[in-house]
Design a protein around this nucleic acid. Structure first.
Lengths: 140, 140
DNA sequence: ATAAACTATGAAGTGCGCTTCAAAGCAAGA
DNA sequence: TCTTGCTTTGAAGCGCACTTCATAGTTTAT
């Protein structure tokens, strides 16, 4: 069992964030000592790591709560949970596409700047000229 | 040239968002009619599309503004801009890793539920039992 | 001429995900 | 014992990215 501070250190979150997650019902059953001090178990820590994994992929608190709520309601909610997980996966895939689009754009931009730095004469462009030059590269 | 409403329809944003972007200096030079009505050019529309592409990849308004500010300051800022673009690319890559981690987790979860639905006897688990079962699958 | 539709502006409001604060209780070492 | 550090709580605050509102001017169709 770990204290609030230990759990925070282990997960890389702050104690405030852990309390916030608990308030938002992302951590349904954190034990307490007689003096109401929190006691995080190894399972709690793993659970928090899972939450972090989802949060880093922009899964909203609300969705995680919803899932956990179903989970605590037992086996009869399996179908709903499977559907939910499927929706997460779809969302993650579409985020992936967005990232790839932005990556394609920025990588083209980088190549463009590398080229520009090779020809010192071409460096005195207004931003509109630069934009048009960049576009014409993209079209070819 | 397009009116506010037309530009909004073409980009899928609202007129309010376009005004907000302008206020935040993401659209430095939108023309106006004599009555101060905005007139969006084709270049403006393309520019807005580019901003949308970055926003969908979670690039903050602040960063986009910073980049555009350098851009309007001309050729002497090319080195800084190249550095900035490189930093975007790094950030996008690390976001990609986060997405892939979450995707791996949720896809494993989905397989787990598919299996669970095949064995009706195993569906009456508490959430802790389910979690432990899921973990044991992952370790194998 | 008048109503409906569009545009402008600044200011205030919203939802999210934390973070910080204030006041108080508990714990461990010098 | 006293101080330092950790913990508790509820409430308030914050930064971001919009969104909505109130008020007022313009344009267009009937």
């Amino acid at each position: 069992m770990y204290s609030a501070k230990e759990a925070a250190e282990m997960t890389g979150l702050t104690t405030a964030t852990l309390r916030y997650y608990e308030k938002e019902q992302l951590l349904p059953a954190i034990e307490r000592t007689e003096q109401r001090y929190r006691q995080y178990s190894d399972t709690d820590i793993e659970w928090i790591n899972m939450i972090q994994c989802l949060r880093m992929a922009n899964v909203p608190i609300r969705s995680i709560r919803e899932y956990i709520l179903l989970l605590t309601q037992g086996g009869k909610t399996i179908l709903q949970r499977r559907l939910m997980v499927q929706e997460y996966i779809d969302d993650l895939h579409s985020q992936m596409v967005n990232l790839q689009n932005a990556l394609a754009l920025t990588e083209k931009k980088l190549v463009f700047y590398e080229e520009l730095l090779q020809s010192p004469s071409a460096q005195d462009l207004t931003y509109l000229e630069e934009w048009n030059l960049f576009k014409s590269k993209g079209e070819s």
